[in-house]
Nucleic acid binder design. Structure first.
Lengths: 151, 151
DNA sequence: TGATGAATATCAAACCCTTGATATGGTCGC
DNA sequence: GCGACCATATCAAGGGTTTGATATTCATCA
């Protein structure tokens, strides 16, 4: 390490989290690709399946991205006929978004393969280990929030 | 859940990992921003500090991105005078990359704040918990690799 | 020597994401 | 009712990432 670097790289848990997530993204990418989807598109369709008629902004919150980022994803999904957007009958500023049949089909295709990855993760651990990992990650998230607040 | 969705969303550990990592990225982004850097730029400078004269391709491997992605990051860093690239004296196809003084300064500024986030994470856990989290994440990564191989 | 193969670098296209700014429509307090 | 406020949507600019294709250079081996 360099002088002035305050913490050895090996002690930075953030590195482990990032590496694991990059591995996960890579696998998910591979999984949903044959359905003609990207990972963000898959995530959006997945959230949409559970919340038909949701607004773009709400969808963005669900997927933890900015509304602008979600707009781009929805634009691509709409151009390919996987979703439909129609103005809300009362609240005229809102665009209600729904899956089309093609969208549902693509989602099911993608999910079938994405689940393979999720099952592989689940199968690696015992019930207790899964709970432990979840708990540690949740505490991690809280700690990160506290750390960010110090900036 | 919808019929046909093979696994409840709440059981997908990938979701927890992704959420934690997004939180981490957001905090890191906030941390390095005041140094005028993005997170990938910070990561590249960090790796460069430990490996002066490394090639772009090797740097890409270290940061777990494609060489093309690293090329973009290096282009931006070079335009802002934070790194220098010079042809390797013997192996003429290689561009050796090194930090400039400005680059080292920016890195130290950014790292000072990034470490705040890392320290907040470390402080949340006991020594044993940190080891457990690392071990579970490592097994997770292996399981993901096995899952991806089934695709 | 000369061909093959591996590593490096780069161009191009498509997509995703962020910040910042702006316009529009609805809600609530006065 | 009217204005302040909030949520939604969108435009614009700057980065980052991937896949795919191509060129260059070096090392290896027949």
């Amino acid at each position: 390490m360099l002088p002035g670097m305050g913490m050895p790289a090996g002690e930075r848990l953030g590195m482990d989290i990032k590496r694991t997530e990059q591995s996960l993204m890579s696998a998910k990418h591979l999984a949903v690709r044959s359905a003609g989807l990207t990972v963000p598109q898959y995530a959006a369709l997945f959230a949409l399946a559970d919340n038909p008629g949701i607004s773009g902004a709400a969808l963005a919150r669900t997927c933890l991205v900015t509304p602008q980022a979600m707009t781009v994803v929805l634009k691509n999904l709409e151009e390919r006929g996987l979703i439909e957007r129609s103005p809300h009958p009362w609240h005229r500023n809102i665009l209600e978004t729904r899956l089309t049949e093609a969208g549902r089909t693509a989602l099911e295709l993608a999910d079938e393969r994405a689940v393979v990855v999720e099952r592989a993760i689940a199968a690696e651990f015992t019930e207790g280990e899964r709970a432990t990992l979840r708990e540690l990650l949740a505490r991690c998230e809280q700690a990160i929030g506290r750390g960010a607040a110090q900036l």
